[in-house]
Amino acid sequence: MVSSLERVAGRITAPRGERILGWATLVAMAASAVMSLVVSPPDAQQGNAARLLYIHVPSAWLAYLSFAVVFVASIAYLATRRTRWDRLAAASAEVGVLFTALAIALGSLWGKPVWGTWWTWDPRITTTTILLLIYVGYLAVRRLSDSPARRARWAAVVGVVGFLDVPVSYLSVTWWRGLHQGTTIRLLGESTIAPIMQVALMTGVFAFTLLFLYLVTVRLRLGRLEDRAVAEALSPRLGQSAEALLEQEASARG
């Protein structure tokens, strides 16, 4: 199953696949912008500020999606020791940090007119902030080691442990806000959301998911190119690429 998954992934990340994915993302993002800014009506209480929903929620979705991908890729790396899993974890973590920061910034921007403050220690905001800090730490760990294999192993451990920390953090922050104070603050009541707004939100989530795939694809290509530069520099014999040498060695060994 893993190998067929890898084949599909390989097809998407080929140069032509990357270009098609890029255009599809652009079209979806444009459709989402039209749905969010033109088609969808302003909210009865929050006016046009409620339009931030259509980018805030997809950003937060990408934040959690990407760290889940880091978790899975980290386990896959530790199990198989194949560099592609490490590259996937690195790519997904970088994209995840971007969208976590974006989700927090957009939430803050939305909170100002609705709650009258840029910041509130709401459980979800606080947990997302802790998540951001954990994965900033993850990216820092990736810069620690000179050895690619060690870097991959260390990062994978942080990727696994960091993700397992999230539910415990969420629980602690929720209780900390007050076990007895009732529910958390909601920006929009889920039940009161109009159908047209739901469609706009779904379009946004879809467009951002495509964007995630595109960004990870480009970031994976960057990782491969960086690895190739290192391999070329370390290639022991002149006039031969490192990969060819590795293949020779493998066939000689039988």
Binding site: I130, I134, L144, D165, S172, V173
Partner: peptide
């Protein structure tokens, strides 16, 4: 690096 990693993880 160590405090950057440990402090957020130890939030609970």
């Amino acid at each position: 690096v160590l405090p950057l990693l440990v402090l957020p993880l130890a939030t609970p």
